[in-house]
Design a protein around this nucleic acid. Structure first.
Lengths: 341, 341
DNA sequence: CAATTTTATGTAAGTGCTTACATAACGTAT
DNA sequence: ATACGTTATGTAAGCACTTACATAAAATTG
């Protein structure tokens, strides 16, 4: 419509509307101490001239650009992507923007990405996914460093430290309960498939081990299978299961630490002509969209992604307003029973 | 390590290292006209004091913060998420950051999001997914407006306009060829399932219609089924197919405009006890990770997401350097035959 | 060795906004 | 009408950088 001249500043608006730049600035920030008529006038001029405030200058003055940094190992992981989606949406509703960085899985890269966020002067950082907290304490120092300058929010992970806020599920209990459930369904040989040695990954693994222990299986190591790979490595996982089977490892159920691992187990079973769940029962983790898009639908542990994401943003907004917020928030996961058990 | 005092500025570095702020700034920007010894000295002081430049101030001065805005309707769509991942990765390698905004599917929201990017002074905008270009010309004005101030990149969509660069596949031909393929496999009644009326969606639809026409089916409308919903609405799609079937619509193959629609068709078929592909053949579109995670694996049209994403970033970097770049880049999609046909 | 170019550094004026402080205008109570 | 508190507005000094221009020092040339 109007002028496409790009370099409009507050001065142009000031001149054209016959008020000082201070008043223009006040209008811009929605301060109440401006006469209604002046405000209308200024707003009119702004929209007429097509004025857009310069974000850098505002940032310099306010020392904030209303931007939250989001770190995510892999945005193509359906589950993490969903979390990012919920969070971004909630942030936007609160007039914040999201600066997303996909970090990959190495801690070196995560550290760099977080430093980048600090340089970008984000108001806070949100680390999405359990893989940001290692079971090795030394690898978690980068979080502490960042928390020295901005609030750090952790989704699905827990790290106790000043100015970091953890929101997560009771993974240990959830896995343990899921395995118990498999036992009640008459399963004898349960395989645990996992691909993360994060802090939370370790807790899940312990849940599995303790469940076995309570059922008299002490050497659970054989049945806890660590695999490497992400959501796109289904065929790799299937091969690994094939190899295990060929090497004589026998199992009638798979508990997986991620839905996509469970899906791989399912694919393995179906390819081998097994009946699901009679010959092979499978439980996933996350209750992601993967669990319902196929037939048979996957039994999965719902770790409350949406409420956790939303609560995370709430907590963050509280922190940014200066309110006192709980450093740890734990939700209870819930087993969603479907066709694979 | 060093002081965590946050408010270090260029002046502190200047003072401590005995040079002027101009020289410090030059070092910061890696300019060559600085004596090597001075540079080393300044860099040493910077790292010793733990200095981080203020991004706002730099942005103000440079009028750029090396940030590219990415718009994506729904980051939880596996396919779009993957694209975002590729793009973000390539951008980061080129020292750019990504500002992600998920817009949802309404054009009003898309328009707002793009304006927000402009206010944020991003160096360019990348619109990921065909849904950003409508088949209604009037709805595309927002792109033109943005292109007046920054380069706009389109992935999987095409919009001819100065300063917008489109990278996409020949969707029309791809769908047509896929449908042809179904005919050669002996299919008689092919259903087309689609959920987007975007510019590219329309082209796909036309590919379907023309393929039918060439096989003597003129009233293809009955067989082109428009459904509403996204990746999470599998069950909704399954229901729709059930209803169609109950209403007497008969089909032995489904061509889908998205993999997740194809997956829904598959779920429908398997639930009904159909043999795949004997009773129901299915072809998806995108060749996303969904197509291979399950058994049977889905035949799908590979629309070259990765090379397109990378080429997109290359093109963008060229544009930002001031080079002349092609406004349109079309790749050829390719049918990947798997178990569902 | 004077003249000239090159290289390194400093000074100071932006960049577009925010905001403390000052001032003017306007009631309202005395 | 006088004094006082409000409310609305303006002035000018930041904010932390970049960079054009000026200048000093060093290197090159005839």
């Amino acid at each position: 419509m109007s002028d496409k001249k790009d370099k409009l500043t507050i001065y142009d608006i000031s001149e054209k509307s016959g008020v000082s730049i201070a008043t223009v600035s006040r209008v811009l920030n929605g301060y109440s101490n401006v006469n209604e008529k002046t405000r209308d006038k200024v707003l009119a001029v702004m929209s007429e001239m097509g004025y857009k405030p310069n974000a850098f200058a505002r940032g310099l003055g306010l020392d904030s650009m209303k931007t939250i940094g989001i770190l995510c190992a892999d945005s193509s992981d359906a589950y993490l992507a969903k979390a990012v989606y919920y969070i971004e949406e909630a942030l936007r509703a609160a007039q914040y923007n999201a600066l997303l960085i996909c970090t990959g899985y190495s801690f070196e890269d995560k550290k760099n990405a977080l430093e980048l966020l600090l340089e970008r002067k984000v108001d806070a950082a949100i680390l999405v996914g359990s893989n940001f907290v290692s079971s090795k304490a030394s690898e978690n120092v980068y979080i502490k460093d960042a928390a020295a300058s901005i609030p750090v929010m952790l989704l699905n992970a827990c790290f106790e430290c000043d100015n970091v806020y953890s929101l997560y599920c009771n993974d240990y209990a959830a896995v343990k309960a899921a395995v118990e459930f498999l036992y009640t369904k008459g399963r004898k040989k349960i395989l645990y498939l996992y691909n993360s040695k994060s802090y939370s990954g370790t807790k899940k693994l312990n849940g599995f081990k303790d469940a076995l222990k309570e059922h008299g299986v002490s050497s659970s190591t054989d049945y806890a299978v660590y695999v490497q790979g992400g959501p796109d490595d289904t065929d790799n996982f299937v091969n690994i299961l094939n190899n295990l089977c060929e090497n004589g490892l026998d199992f009638d159920a798979v508990m997986a630490s991620e839905d996509y691992l469970a899906i791989a187990a399912l694919k393995y079973g179906i390819k081998k002509g097994m009946r699901i769940p009679e010959d092979l029962a499978v439980i996933g983790y996350n209750n992601s969209s993967l669990s319902t898009i196929f037939e048979p639908e996957l039994t999965s542990v719902d770790n409350k992604l949406k409420p956790l994401s939303e609560q995370l943003v709430n907590t963050l907004l509280g922190v940014l307003k200066g309110a006192e917020m709980p450093g740890k928030t734990e939700y209870s996961a819930e087993l969603i029973e479907r066709r694979t058990t």
